[in-house]
């Protein structure tokens, strides 16, 4: 019965989401549903509104209009604007994750890798040093970092390793939804491929739902079940990833797809 309910309710429901910057449109009338375990890629060129959308979803930016509803554990679909500040923060650090494009923005660079991974646990009440440390080592191993380097500062890690550390830091509380802002953009091509493999594996094994903002259609192809194509702040096309990429309907999508070789 409960399992049935879960299947019938989306994890995230967004409708009419709008944000202006003065006279300029940041994002207008965006709506979609995200189901548990589903990965949605938001694609478009810079200025298309995809980053604004992500900021609105993460409640870092207030919307001018529209609703964001999330299926809170035990409470069902709840509009985020109705949450108190304390509830909102709790949600963001337990059931949600946010992976920044630049890992330096998502990590505390002045504390060790272990403290970075353990912070969410401590923020949610963990008070056993040994257990926090064990969890941090476990998560470092899962993202293919050497657990022996737990006491090193993130600044001693390469860019790709920092990105994996940031992912571990987010996943340690086993969130159900992760928002990612161009997670592979700053990395070398070979490092990118390895990170994408890791992300795909983590998403599958934990049943994570994710919204990934990317300008890279190859990333979308590899990770996403569905695509949202944005232009000028609006959604111009949406559908299953393969369907959109193989048979784009909107002229803008066609242009995007045709400008990339070997998808």
């Amino acid at each position: 019965m409960q399992a049935n309910d879960r299947l019938l309710t989306p994890l995230l429901r967004v409708s009419g989401l709008t944000r202006h910057y003065g006279a300029r449109i940041g994002c207008a009338d965006v709506g979609f549903e995200l189901w548990p375990g589903e990965v949605l890629a938001v694609v478009g060129e810079s200025g298309s509104g995809k980053s604004t959308l992500l900021k609105l979803l993460s409640t870092r930016l207030a919307a001018d209009a529209g609703r964001i509803e999330y299926a809170l554990l035990g409470r069902g679909l709840t509009e985020l604007s109705r949450l108190s500040e304390a509830e909102r923060r709790w949600l963001l650090r337990t059931d949600w994750g946010f992976v920044e494009q630049n890992p330096r923005d998502g990590l505390r660079m002045n504390v060790s890798a272990g403290a970075n991974v353990g912070e969410r646990l401590m923020a949610t009440g963990a008070r056993h040093y040994g257990e926090i440390r064990a969890a941090a080592q476990d998560w470092m191993a899962r993202v293919e970092l050497d657990p022996a380097r737990i006491d090193e500062a993130p600044s001693r890690f390469s860019g790709g390793m920092q990105q994996r550390l940031q992912i571990a830091r987010n996943l340690v509380t086993k969130p159900r939804l992760v928002l990612m802002d161009e997670p592979t953009a700053g990395l070398d091509v070979s490092v990118q491929a390895r990170l994408l493999d890791l992300l795909r594996e983590l998403v599958t094994s934990f049943g994570l739902a994710a919204v990934i903002v990317t300008h890279d259609l190859a990333v979308a192809r590899l990770l996403a079940h569905r695509l949202l194509v944005m232009q000028g702040g609006r959604v111009v096309e949406t559908g299953l990833t393969d369907q959109v990429l193989d048979d784009p309907q909107h002229p803008y999508t066609q242009l995007l797809v045709s400008s990339v070789l070997h998808l």
């Binding site: 272990g114 969410r120 401590m122 923020a123 040093y129």
Partner: peptide, 13 residues
């Protein structure tokens, strides 16, 4: 939470 991060760092170091 981040007060415990500081204590964690102390113990780790």
């Amino acid at each position: 939470g981040f007060m415990h991060v500081k204590l964690y760092e102390d113990i780790a170091r």
